[in-house]
Every structure is written in C-alpha cells, then in structure tokens.
Design a protein around this nucleic acid. Sequence first.
DNA 1: GTCTATAAAGAGATAGAC
DNA 2: GTCTATCTCTTTATAGAC
Lengths: 215, 215
Amino acid sequence: MRRKRIGTSVPSDISQAAAADPSIDQRGRIMDVAAHLFRTKGYSGTSTREISSLIGIQKASLYHHIDSKEALLYELCVDATQRILDRATVIAAENQEPIIKLRALMRQHAITMLDSQDRHATMLIELLHGSLTGERRAAVDSLRDKYQSVLYSAIRECQQVGDVRTDWNARDLTLAALSLLNWTVFWFDDQGRLTKSQVADLLTSTFLDGVKDQH
Amino acid sequence: MRRKRIGTSVPSDISQAAAADPSIDQRGRIMDVAAHLFRTKGYSGTSTREISSLIGIQKASLYHHIDSKEALLYELCVDATQRILDRATVIAAENQEPIIKLRALMRQHAITMLDSQDRHATMLIELLHGSLTGERRAAVDSLRDKYQSVLYSAIRECQQVGDVRTDWNARDLTLAALSLLNWTVFWFDDQGRLTKSQVADLLTSTFLDGVKDQH
DNA sequence: GTCTATAAAGAGATAGAC
DNA sequence: GTCTATCTCTTTATAGAC
C-alpha cells in the first residue's frame, strides 16, 4: 500500500453515509468508517473485521489500503489535529484586536472539532490510552503542542492589553478554555437541539463572560 | 464469588500503591488496579491477565473475586457516580443562597472526581464506548441523570433569583458547566503544578465570572 | 483491488486439584 | 484463595490465487 495523501476528500465523518457514497474513494471511506467505529467503540474495541464489513469487503482486502490498524489511527489523529492547527494559525496571524482573535480561535476550535467529531473524539481518547506509540505518538503530540501554544499566546496577549483578568495566569486559563472546548466533542449531537454555531457561542460566551448576572 | 460491597475501603486510586498496601483487601486492590489500567489503556485494551499480574496472582484466581470483566467495570462506574451524587445531594439540601450552593456543587464535582480520577475517567470514557450493556448500563445512566438534575436545578434556581444570566437557558449552562468540569479528569496530574483545590477554584471561577477583565 | 485460507498470538472464562 | 491446565473464540496480519 502506498500513502496517497493525508485525510480524505470530504469533511463528512459519518460512517453510514461514507460507506454508501460512491464519490468518496475507498481509502476515504475506510477512514470515515474507522473514525466512527473508533469513537463509538474505542480503538482496541474495534476489529479490522468490523471496519471491512461496514465497507463491504473482506478483512484481508483492507490491508491493500492501509499498512496496519495503528497506521490508520495515526492518519485520523494527524488529520484532526492538523486541521485545527491550520485554521488557528490563520486566525492568529490576522491583524485584529486580541480579544477578537481569542473569540475567533475558540469558535473555530469548537466548530472544526464538531465538523470532524469522530476523528477528534478518537484522537483525544486514544492519546490518553496510548494507542499510538513511538514516532507516530510524537508527531501527533507535536501538532497538539503547536496548537496549544497558539491559544496560549492569544490569551497571554489579551492579558497584556488588559482585556483578560490576570489573577489567573495564561497557562491555567488555557487549560480552562481547552476543558470547556474539548469535552463538547463527546456529547454534541448533530441531530440535537443545538447547532454547532450555537454550541460555539455558548462556550465562548461562558468562557469570556461567565454565567453570573453582571447587571 | 459474592458481592461484598460497592467500592473499596480506601479513597486511594493509585494501582502501584494499592497493589502493595496490605491494609486493603484483595477485592479493593483489584478494583484500584483495574481502574488504573482501564483509564490508561482503556477497558478493552486491558486484559484480565494484566490486572492479575499487577496484583501478583494468576488470571484464573481473579475470578474468585469477580464475576466477569464487565461486572468489574460496572462496580467502578457505580462507585464513581454514586460518590459524586451523594455529596451533591447533601449540598443541594442545605439552606444556603443559590449561588453559594452552585459554587459548592462545582467545587465538590471537581474535587470528588479528582480524588478518584481513575474511576471517573474510566466511567466517562467507557460509557461513551458502550462497554456496559443492558441493566448495568441503565443503572449507571440513572445515577448520572440524577446527578445532572441536581446541578441543573441549582443553576435554574440561581437564574430565578437573578444571580445567573438568563439569555442562555439552564439546560445549556449545565452542559457548559459539565464540559468545563469533566474534561479536567483527563489532564489533571496529581504531581503537577496545581492542587485539586486550585483546579476547583479555577473552574468555578471561570464558569461563574468568565475571564474578561471586568474593571 | 478483492478474494479464500491460514498463521500465530491473545482474549475471557471455567474445571478441578490443593 | 490460589494454582495449573484447558476450552473456545477472536484478534491482527500475511500468502497467494484471480
């Protein structure tokens, strides 16, 4: 198998649709189905047989497209992390007020994450579970670190111009922001009451303003 | 094997210490070791052999103490959820100002969760992964629902007396609170820079006041 | 690019001795 | 309460035909 590219041609993350859609190539289909199964059953709780079965091929045929189960997980994690880092880098480079940039960074984090919910949920959990090892683990960690630096710098900058409180340091506030944002990927329901945009508003508004009535 | 009790005699959650401590009975030791392995490697990524090996017995000997691997997971999840619900119920019943109660509820959520970090992290992830089935799943869901109702009511009450903003409904604000609190269990480091109490302050302060400078 | 067949290892769980 | 031995099933991955 040769590595053709990182990620798939479509942002869709839903395995059932992916399994049927003829416009996605087989490799993209495999990644979408795998991401969905990894999120809902866990990486080690998902067998290669289940993946191939949902695609409609034999287990052995899967290995024509992927090197190994772990390599498949790796690509999903890189794709998720890279996507969020790329968009954050663009926002951070804009010539805008710090607080506007911070809000935009948080909004894109929420929305990008929910746009590829299966991949992001998988990435977050499987990094905790140590399912990626060696260089693959290091590569994904590196991308995450870069992203977190971008968010940290944005918060630090807001503090320096007096837009954000300084009784907590930027490092701690970054942890709080990430907590608020990351857990969302595990409960958000695409068919649910709230849209992605509304969730993004809820989270940024809570983080920036808090919930106490200020009047 | 007979079910002796729910949970263990000690709050400790660290497998290495648990495996060595002679003051904990074998059953408590198994639960602590299992919780630690389930958190760090996942439920399906952990073998019964690994658990028994860390205890220092054979795999077969484990089955004198537990019914099955899933029954072991079930007890961990019930223990975690019950603990947080019990303490919340006490706080909610107190005769206090709504905003004081809300703050106390959030603080105890953070601290109770971090006191049994392995169990709570395992519970949160394995519910997502559907590792518990049938009645066991329903029982844990029921406990979680009860707890979330307590938190929801506290937020609702704060809105009614004018302490909390009403442009977001209580249901959404509950989701935001839970997001902020729950993700914490995955990054908190007992040996790290922040104490549990400091983390609890950071989260409650962020949620109630936000990060924007109000001066 | 997909198939059948198979290798080699590991899983959860049980039987029965001590 | 722990042991050895074993049953049965599933796992990831490969070989080689078509």
